[in-house]
């Protein structure tokens, strides 16, 4: 089918892009001022351990060989050891990745759905109070500074009102309690997740709302909308069945294009709420000079962005037959 061919083509493009990122990162880590060995090997290690790691990472080889080692290590998941945790980097990032994906994708999907829904309503009430309020609200939430919004939410809802935990993802007393069922545990995660989720959601849904609104207004001027009207369809059907599916396409595009920007926000949110995700791990690794962990987290985030892009593109192709066929 055409859709699989399309996905295949995108996958190849993504692989090329990723390969370039991989290579540039390699060059940066080897050619930046300072000693590349001390960047990859914990200075506190015993000499034997260090020796072993150096030969494993190929750090005693010429640059070309090092690159091959680097590629091999990447594909076998060997990113060295974290200075801070003293554990293999791969274990740390595997543990963090699901948390990031959970928070990030939930927020983006929720923001897109709500943005599309409200944008449709705003366009329908163009010029009325509903529209003005929604547009203004969207403008404000879209431009508010994310870390600040996060801090304010913590201050109001976690500190003053005490509705939600201030930080973290899990409460120890729930997770260490052998009697707690899976449901209680889920509720606990959800309880921790509400505020970071709200932060990411608020930052994103405004721009989707604005795009949907203007796209809807453009779509309503299309000839096929006139056809739908002439066919004697009800306004509701015209709006939901004929205009909205077309108008939502630019929103999907914009979700894809802004993914890289969104993941910045993801990292900030994780850091503020101490959500144990990969973005926070990157920020901490950088501030602790934990190079192996920083490098691997960055690569993994790049993979997350690229794959999310693929998902968005596939969704677009699914929604727009002009691409699918």
């Amino acid at each position: 089918m055409e859709l699989t061919r399309y996905i295949g083509r995108r996958l190849i493009q993504i692989a090329i892009i990723f390969f370039v990122i991989l290579t540039v990162l390699f060059l940066l880590f080897r050619l930046a001022p300072g000693d590349p060995v001390s960047r990859m090997v914990d200075p506190d290690m015993t000499p034997e351990d260090a020796e072993f790691l150096i030969s494993q990472l190929g750090l005693d080889q010429p640059l070309g060989m090092q690159y091959l080692y680097y590629l091999k290590n990447f594909f076998t998941g060997n990113f060295g050891e974290s200075f801070h945790y003293g554990q293999p980097v791969i274990e740390i990032i595997w543990a963090r990745l699901p948390n990031t994906i959970l928070l990030f994708t939930t927020a983006i999907i929720l923001a897109a759905l709500v943005g599309i829904f409200l944008g449709k309503i705003a366009s329908w009430h163009k010029g009325e109070t509903t529209d003005t309020l929604m547009t203004l609200g969207a403008l404000v939430t879209h431009t508010v500074f994310l870390p600040w919004l996060g801090l304010i939410l913590i201050w109001v809802f976690a500190y003053k009102l005490d509705w939600f935990p201030i930080t973290g993802m899990l409460s120890e007393e729930v997770w260490l309690d052998p009697g707690a069922g899976i449901f209680t545990k889920l509720i606990d995660v959800l309880h921790h997740m509400i505020l970071p989720l709200a932060t990411l959601f608020f930052i994103h849904f405004g721009s989707y709302l604005l795009i949907m609104r203007s796209s809807m207004l453009e779509t309503l001027k299309e000839d096929y909308i006139l056809t739908a009207r002439a066919k004697g369809l009800q306004e509701k059907v015209i709006r939901n069945h004929h205009a909205a599916p077309n108008a939502a396409l630019p929103v999907v595009t914009s979700v894809g294009l802004s993914l890289a920007f969104s993941i910045n926000g993801g990292a900030l949110t994780e850091t503020i709420f101490t959500w144990p995700g990969i973005g926070r791990e990157l920020v901490m690794a950088v501030s602790q000079n934990d190079y192996p962990l920083a490098q691997a987290s960055f690569l993994l985030i790049a993979i997350v962005v690229l794959l999310s892009n693929l998902v968005v593109d596939t969704l677009y192709a699914y929604l727009d037959p002009r691409i699918r066929y």
């Binding site: 299309e222 096929y224 006139l226 056809t227 739908a228 004929h242 599916p245 077309n246 727009d320 037959p321």
Partner: peptide, 10 residues
């Protein structure tokens, strides 16, 4: 404008 009179997504 018959060329655009049909909805592209249906």
């Amino acid at each position: 404008a018959a060329m655009n009179a049909l909805n592209p997504v249906h």
